[in-house]
Every structure is written in C-alpha cells, then in structure tokens.
Design a protein around this nucleic acid. Structure first.
Lengths: 159, 159
DNA sequence: CCAAATTTTTAGGTATGCCTAAAAATATAT
DNA sequence: ATATATTTTTAGGCATACCTAAAAATTTGG
C-alpha cells in the first residue's frame, strides 16, 4: 500500500470529526485497520506540524490550517471522482482512483480536469458526445457521425 | 518522493537498454540520482523476482517477464500522456503526471481512458468540442452553442 | 602487462512507518 | 467509590529504501 500522506490523515480526521467534537486514536485506527499505537505517533506528528490540536488521552481536532487542507483535499477528491464518473468509470472505482490521484496531480492538471467537467456539464452537445463514448466503450464501434452535424461542426471550428 | 515500484525500475532498465546490450548499476544510479550501491540492491531484488538477468560487476538485461512488464507499463504511460495532452495539459506536466498515474489507475479506468482517446481521435465533432474546452479554459467563457447544432445533437441523442 | 583510475559490491548505518506487549490513564458498573 | 474493563500511550522491534565508506573487481593508458 502507498505511504499515507498528511493530506490523507487530515482528510480522514475531517470526515470523522463530522458531528463529533473530538477524534480519538481508535477512530483512525479502526478506519485504517492499523494499530492505535501507530495513530498516537501520527497524531504527534500532525500536532507538531500544526494540523491538529492534540491532547494525550483526549484526542484530536483540526486546527484552522488542518481544516483548510482537509477541505481543499476533499474538493480535489470530489472533482476527480466526478470527472471519472463522467467518462464512464464505475462509481466505486472512480472513488478509489480519485483517492490516489488527488495526491499526485499537478495543479495545472487539476485545473484542466475541473474545466473539463464544467464544459461537459455546460456544453449542449456533450450528451451526444458522451453517448458516442459509451457506445464505443461497450461495442467497440463508433457510429458514423451524421453528415449534417459534421458539416456544422467543421464550419464553426474554423472560426 | 513516492516509493519507486518494480514497474518504475523495469521501465527504466528498458529505456536505458535501448541500443545497448547491458545496463550498468551506474546508468540507473545517475538516471535516478541515487547511490550505485542502492542500485545493486535493487538489481538483486529484480533478479530474484525474475525481471532481470543480473551478473555481479557485469550488469543487467531484462528477462522476457521484465520486458513484458516494461512494454505494458510504457504503453499505459503513453496513453495517459496522450490523454492529458488532449485535454489541454502542458506536455511536460502531462508526462510527469502520467508517470505517477500509470501505477495507480484501476485497469477499468485505464480502459476508459484508452477508449476516450480513441473516440476523441475518431469522432468528427471532437475538434469542435475540444475548441470549446480550450476556449473555456482560457477565457472562462463558453460561447453559446449554435442552435442548429444543438437541435441535431438532441435529435440524434434520443435514438 | 601492470599500475592507476573507475566501477561495483559489501558492510554497516539512518529514517520512517508500521508492529506488539505492557504500562498508564480513563471510563464503566455495581 | 472502587474494582474492572477499555482506551491510549510508551518502549522497543522489524522491514524497507535509502545512505556512506571502504573493499573488490574491472577497465584503461602508458
């Protein structure tokens, strides 16, 4: 398994903190199937670096810095998931791949993906286009583009 | 830096082996800016697991198993790069992001990306569509879709 | 062909991220 | 209220992926 990043932990603390005030060692340990003792070490590190307020035997809460990072990370995560689902990737797989991708993508790539999703959602001809992608993914065949459509597209592309 | 995988090393050996018979410890060491001693350890591991033929003080060549993995990995790499460039990501950034993505993407996601690239390249209206994406990425504005085009698309989508 | 320079390996060290076992603190139940 | 159960921490261990220094093998130049 990939080494977990600070982002991973902060995001997890954020998710677990929903509705509760404090996240306990054990919450993280069982969420990740690791030993509570390891979480103690992680908490100590996150605390040193200013992402959480941590008190021995009590638990942890995100600092402002931690919450900011968590929210940013979650946003990336959601955008990537949405992107992959739009392309036709299965929801669950999109979710796990997004979880990996969010850590590695260059900000420019991230921006491109965000724009892509927006255009997909705004552009009127996208549904047609996506249908063709699905069709091709399923059958391996791409139906011929209606000639009148092709004509219009080339006309407008030249502008 | 992310932990390097067997795929990384095998792909690198493959690239360095181009035109030479044998890859030396030092080739890898300087390519990755790590110590030659570390490469010795890596070679020992790769050899144990059957990816390279390795002889002390001589160097390494890929086995059939190693070459197969290298080619497969390179193909993934190239497809992802192509995909990102199509979306509008800068060539260099596409390259480095692809290098990370190739290790983590689920095979289904990989397939989807491959199909996507194929459709992008085959579908006659794609250039029009991509123009709009570029336009939107640059200006933040999406020009209104010509009504006649919209009509045709919705007509054909319903089929 | 052999001495010097270069390359590669060996041996041992460091940092990290996890582990287990046991000690310490906290929570619960009668 | 205190004994018992639970949770958390401490202390020490293991594996891995890198490192450095020095030994060993190979290559090169006169």
């Amino acid at each position: 398994m990939r080494k977990k990043t600070i982002e991973d932990y902060v995001e997890l603390v954020y998710n677990l903190q929903k509705g509760k005030k404090i996240v306990h060692t054990n919450d993280i340990a069982s969420a990740l199937s690791i030993n509570p003792a390891s979480v103690t070490e992680i908490f100590q590190k996150l605390s040193e670096e200013g992402y959480i307020n941590y008190e021995k035997y009590i638990g942890a809460t995100l600092t402002k810095k931690g919450r900011t990072l968590a929210v940013k990370t979650k946003k990336k995560h959601n955008k990537i998931t949405e992107f992959l689902i739009l392309l036709g990737v299965d929801k669950e797989i999109a979710e796990t791949d997004a979880c990996e991708m969010e850590h590695i993508l260059h900000p420019d790539t991230m921006d491109t993906i965000i724009k892509f999703v927006e255009v997909i959602k705004k552009c009127e001809i996208t549904p047609f286009w996506l249908n063709r992608l699905k069709e091709y993914t399923k059958t391996g065949k791409l139906p011929k583009c209606p000639p009148e459509l092709y004509q219009i597209c080339t006309k407008y592309s030249k502008k």
